[in-house]
């Protein structure tokens, strides 16, 4: 009864007045009681009508339920937003883009050749004393492991920053020391410069380099991971280990699979 009064009070103060007045009437003014009582009873029934204990319980339960649901929903949305943020955490740097080069077999090759495979792109030159071969060895080690796990869905690419000396045949010879999937690419000085610009790679070869000269090329040493749409995913510096590169590739493939249902 108490809880009922409370809900009444909560609902409509006018009725509280009616009720308390009625109780006074009940104790003092007996003669007119019947009429007042009837009226009070009707009004009480009306009051009770909307707020039976069951209704109150339902009301409270619904309230709690809604609060819990909304809180969960809010948390879920926040988590989803967080996940999305993690996926795009760095935005997508504008790395990569159209290019037109020649493979080590003398075939033309453009950015479209990157589609449908995960590619690891490295810029270097065949007369590189130590860093390039070390990086290409690293890519070879990575390739051996990820291919075992995921199959032939990877394309390691070596782009020459020394077009004066690195002929397709010379690159073909050079790449024999590394993973058999390696694709060597080379172009004229201007196309080399353009592809380096697209990938934000610095290189020091002068346009008029002597094809028979004995010189070194200073260049940026990053391995770029590109997704099967040919879009940039990650750049790995020299200090990043093969294991770390593999971990990032596996993670990227998992995410890609979540979005597309496929590995490539």
């Amino acid at each position: 009864m108490f809880s009922l009064t409370r809900s009444t009070l909560y609902c409509c103060p006018r009725r509280v007045f009616t009720a308390s007045w009625r109780s006074k009437v009940q104790t003092v003014q007996k003669p007119v009681r019947t009429h007042w009582r009837t009226y009070a009873q009707i009004s009480e029934r009306n009051t009770i009508g909307a707020f039976t204990p069951t209704a109150a319980a339902l009301f409270i339960l619904t309230g709690i339920g809604l609060a819990v649901y909304l809180r969960n929903e809010k948390q879920r949305l926040e988590e989803e937003r967080e996940k999305e943020r993690a996926l795009k955490s760095y935005g997508r740097p504008q790395i990569g883009g159209p290019f037109s080069l020649t493979t080590h077999d003398g075939e033309p090759f453009t950015q479209e050749g990157l589609l449908g495979k995960w590619s690891l792109v490295y810029f270097g030159f065949t007369n590189c004393p130590d860093i390039c071969p070390a990086e290409l060895d690293k890519i070879t080690a990575v390739m051996n492991n990820i291919q075992k796990e995921h199959g032939h869905i990877f394309l390691p690419i070596f782009i020459s920053v020394d077009p004066a000396r690195d002929s397709p045949s010379r690159i073909a010879q050079y790449l024999k020391d590394f993973h058999p999937s390696f694709l060597g690419l080379v172009g004229a000085y201007d196309t080399t410069k353009a592809v380096c610009k697209a990938y934000r790679v610095y290189f020091s070869t002068p346009p008029n380099a002597d094809p028979n000269g004995d010189y070194l090329v200073d260049h940026s040493i990053f391995v770029y991971l590109m997704d099967p749409r040919g879009q940039f995913v990650e750049a790995f510096g020299q200090q990043v280990t093969a294991e770390e590169v593999e971990a990032k590739i596996n993670e990227s493939i998992t995410q890609w699979q979540k979005g597309t249902g496929k590995k490539v």
Binding site: N127, P129, D130, S167, S169, Y174, D177, N212
Partner: peptide, 21 residues
């Protein structure tokens, strides 16, 4: 491996590099 021969100088291979190092 480089500069001395005028016709299509070949790049150093793994063995050449190893020996140099």
């Amino acid at each position: 491996w480089s500069s001395t021969s005028k016709e299509d100088p070949t790049a150093p291979n793994r063995e050449n590099r190893q020996r140099c190092w």
